[in-house]
Design a protein around this nucleic acid. Structure first.
Length: 462
RNA sequence: GGCGCUAUGGUCAAGCGGCUAAGACGUCGCCCUCUCAAGGCGAAAUCGAGGGUUCGAUUCCCUCUAGCGCUACCA
């Protein structure tokens, strides 16, 4: 939605990596975010890899900046050093919890004089820095999506803005960065709505004008809990590996928080940019439904230009061990035809590979039910007729194979199905596949005949 | 415990005082068809509860309930 909004307004999308939590930091996760965004087609105008005038774009590289502003606040008497230890604070909280009191910091260090605090810092005592917030009043958040939301001051702490390890806290760092980076609009998940008043207090202390905020509804796991690895959270990377295409994922995700207002379900990014309006955003948390995503993926698989999905489809064939790089190079046309025939009846790229397996391997076993139903002794002469007729067919394309079958059906005064079903089973080993004549043409005359004859033998022996 | 946000079918979601309460996915039937899909047609299924306001509430107000979020030296 940030991407959409930036494009809609002809603005710039700035990507910033918020990595101030040294304990949770993993190198992997950042590359994964960047890779996923790129794969989805969500490009950014400033940020990692592309640079920009107001970098660095990793918070971990901006420590001096935060320190500078923290010091300014302390000197101005708007923030103060706190020497309370984590244990002490935890104990306080426990007591409040037991007494069913609101959990508030007791402001033990708020009244320590600047001089004394300085001395203790110089003496090497551990400290964090807290914002000295007003004791009374209220803070109003003017939200782009929720409207005006008011918070009473008495529910806020003198919260920490710099941790004892010298790193800023989230609520402080975002303010400094958003201001310095010239951010005008902040769109983020609803979990931050209650954080916004705190950030507003920081803007006030720093004498800065806040940007506009919009808080979007969250996406929940199927059991309504917050999305997490344990609860059905699937990374973009995983969807990709399962054979979903970026267009479908984007389209589906868009639909989870916004709609064009009419009955359309499928639309591409160009259309979405044109139609997108912030005030049409849903305020309700949504649960994502893989079934609909899968359906949508199937729609895109059929309608996307063939060349668009070919490269990605190749990966799935390679991974399944159906083909090799060399084979793909030598059989480019065949491969394209194959994918084109199969893609309309499956829903993921993985399924294209799955449903193509028999084009590469002669079936060694036939579907059991199919055998009982279609490989009867009475089909034997029919199949043999087909073999003879096909051998004489010099053209062997879609029209000619179909003509051959129609002719035999008419001559024997039977329905086409009586020929088609056993043939399909003979060629693919299954009772399910793309159109039979497509299959025959793709297999080629030699393969087709070979498989038919082998099925004839099978029926004779049973 | 405090505060905030949200509340229409199983899921997503139109609706913004008067409608037989759209549409999509899914489910179930039927049609088409060489199978499976796709496509076409149709069905079942919804306004969380209670109070107001009003001639009239899904729609406005209040309370409750539920879900989620914040309440961290996480973001």
């Amino acid at each position: 939605f940030n991407w959409l909004f930036a494009r809609k307004m002809n603005g710039k999308l700035v990507l910033r990596i918020e990595d101030t939590d040294t304990e949770r930091l993993k190198e992997d996760s950042v590359t994964q975010i960047l890779t996923s965004l790129k794969w989805l087609g969500l490009n950014w105008d400033e940020g990692p890899e592309v640079g920009g005038a107001v970098g660095p774009y990793y918070q971990s590289e901006r420590r001096e900046i935060y320190t500078e502003y923290v010091n300014k606040l302390v000197e101005a008497g708007k923030a103060y050093y706190c020497f309370c230890t984590t244990e002490e604070l935890e104990k306080q909280r426990e007591l409040q919890r037991a007494a069913k009191q609101p959990f508030r910091y007791a402001r033990s260090c708020r009244e320590i004089s600047y001089e004394e605090a300085k001395k203790r810092v110089a003496a090497g005592e551990h400290y964090s820095v807290r914002l000295k917030i007003p004791v009374e009043g209220s803070v109003k958040v003017d939200d782009l999506i929720h409207g005006e939301v008011s918070f009473s001051m008495d529910q806020f702490d003198d919260f920490v803005i710099m941790k004892s390890n010298g790193m800023p806290t989230y609520n402080f760092a975002v303010v400094v960065d958003d201001h310095l980076m010239g951010i005008t609009h902040v769109l983020r998940a609803e979990e931050h709505l209650s954080n916004t008043p705190k950030q507003l207090l920081v803007y006030e202390a720093l004498n800065w004008h806040p940007p506009k905020f919009g808080h979007m509804s969250m996406i929940l796991a199927p059991d309504r809990s917050k999305l997490s690895k344990r609860h059905g959270a699937t990374s973009v990377e995983e969807f990709r590996e399962q054979g979903y295409v970026a267009e479908a994922i984007i389209n589906y995700l868009t639909l989870l928080g916004w709609g064009p207002g009419d009955e359309r379900e499928i639309f591409d990014l160009t259309e979405t940019i044109k139609l997108f309006e912030l005030d049409q955003m849903s305020k309700k948390a949504a649960i994502y439904d893989t079934k609909k995503l899968t359906w949508m993926n199937g729609q895109y698989l059929s309608s996307l230009p063939l060349e668009r999905i070919l490269p990605e489809t190749k990966e799935f064939f390679l991974k399944a061990g159906l083909v090799t790089e060399e084979w793909l190079q030598e059989n480019e046309v065949f491969f394209a035809q194959l994918v084109d025939v199969v893609r309309v009846r499956v829903k993921t790229l993985q399924e294209i590979a799955d449903a193509s397996e028999y084009f590469f391997n002669m079936p060694t076993v036939y579907d059991e039910k199919g055998v009982a139903k279609y490989f009867k002794q009475e089909s034997l002469p029919l199949l043999e007729q087909c073999v003879v007729a096909l051998r004489e067919d010099t053209v062997f394309d879609l029209a000619s194979t179909e003509a051959v079958y129609n002719k035999i059906a008419t001559e024997n005064d039977i329905s086409l199905g009586k020929l088609v079903h056993p043939t399909r089973l003979a060629l693919t080993g299954r009772t399910v596949s793309p159109g039979l004549f497509d299959v025959m043409v793709l297999l080629g005359k030699e393969n087709t005949l070979q498989r038919l004859e082998s099925a004839v033998d099978f029926i004779k022996m049973n």
